[in-house]
Lab assay of single mutants.
Amino acid sequence: VKKMAKAIMADPNKADEVYKKWADKGYTLTQMSNFLKSKTAGKYDRVYNGYVIHLD
């Protein structure tokens, strides 16, 4: 998940494709939050927020 999150950060155009894969795998927002937690607070906030919007 972190590898794909980094791919989104490097190229935001990949976001919809990645979010669809995550949704197809049934990842919940709680799971995504836990996967994307980082020592650098807020590092993956943009990715998480994008997934929230995708699921909505």
Score class of each variant (00 low, 15 high):
residue 43 K to E: 12
residue 39 K to L: 08
residue 30 T to C: 11
residue 10 A to S: 11
residue 35 F to Q: 04
residue 22 W to P: 00
residue 10 A to T: 08
residue 3 K to N: 10
residue 44 Y to Q: 01
residue 5 A to R: 00
residue 53 I to H: 14
residue 3 K to M: 12
residue 14 K to E: 05
residue 8 I to Y: 04
residue 38 S to P: 04
residue 22 W to R: 00
residue 55 L to F: 05
residue 37 K to M: 10
residue 30 T to E: 14
residue 37 K to C: 14
residue 36 L to C: 03
residue 14 K to T: 09
residue 47 V to T: 01
residue 29 L to F: 09
residue 31 Q to N: 05
residue 17 E to C: 11
residue 33 S to T: 10
residue 27 Y to E: 00
residue 9 M to T: 05
residue 43 K to Q: 09
residue 54 H to N: 02
residue 9 M to K: 06
residue 43 K to A: 06
residue 54 H to V: 05
residue 24 D to P: 00
residue 8 I to T: 02
residue 32 M to T: 00
residue 47 V to K: 01
residue 55 L to E: 01
residue 19 Y to C: 05
residue 3 K to T: 09
residue 26 G to C: 05
residue 39 K to T: 14
residue 50 G to M: 07
residue 22 W to S: 01
residue 2 K to A: 03
residue 20 K to T: 10
residue 48 Y to C: 04
residue 19 Y to I: 03
residue 3 K to G: 08
residue 12 P to L: 07
residue 8 I to V: 11
residue 42 G to M: 05
residue 9 M to P: 00
residue 12 P to A: 11
residue 12 P to S: 09
residue 35 F to S: 03
residue 37 K to P: 02
residue 13 N to T: 15
residue 30 T to N: 13
residue 44 Y to D: 01
residue 2 K to Y: 05
residue 46 R to K: 14
residue 19 Y to W: 02
residue 37 K to F: 10
residue 52 V to F: 06
residue 34 N to W: 12
residue 47 V to S: 01
residue 10 A to E: 12
residue 34 N to Y: 13
residue 13 N to W: 11
residue 22 W to L: 02
residue 24 D to F: 09
residue 55 L to G: 00
residue 2 K to N: 02
residue 20 K to E: 07
residue 6 K to G: 08
residue 25 K to Y: 12
residue 54 H to Q: 03
residue 32 M to A: 02
residue 23 A to E: 09
residue 24 D to K: 11
residue 44 Y to E: 01
residue 35 F to I: 09
residue 37 K to D: 09
residue 56 D to Y: 15
residue 50 G to Q: 07
residue 38 S to K: 05
residue 7 A to K: 11
residue 12 P to V: 07
residue 23 A to G: 05
residue 9 M to D: 02
residue 39 K to G: 14
residue 2 K to F: 05
residue 38 S to V: 08
residue 40 T to W: 09
residue 23 A to L: 08
residue 39 K to C: 11
residue 39 K to R: 10
residue 10 A to R: 15
residue 14 K to P: 00
residue 46 R to M: 15
residue 23 A to H: 09
residue 49 N to F: 14
residue 8 I to R: 00
residue 51 Y to A: 00
residue 21 K to T: 13
residue 15 A to L: 07
residue 24 D to A: 13
residue 34 N to L: 13
residue 18 V to D: 00
residue 7 A to L: 15
residue 39 K to P: 10
residue 5 A to C: 07
residue 39 K to M: 08
residue 15 A to Y: 03
residue 52 V to P: 01
residue 4 M to N: 08
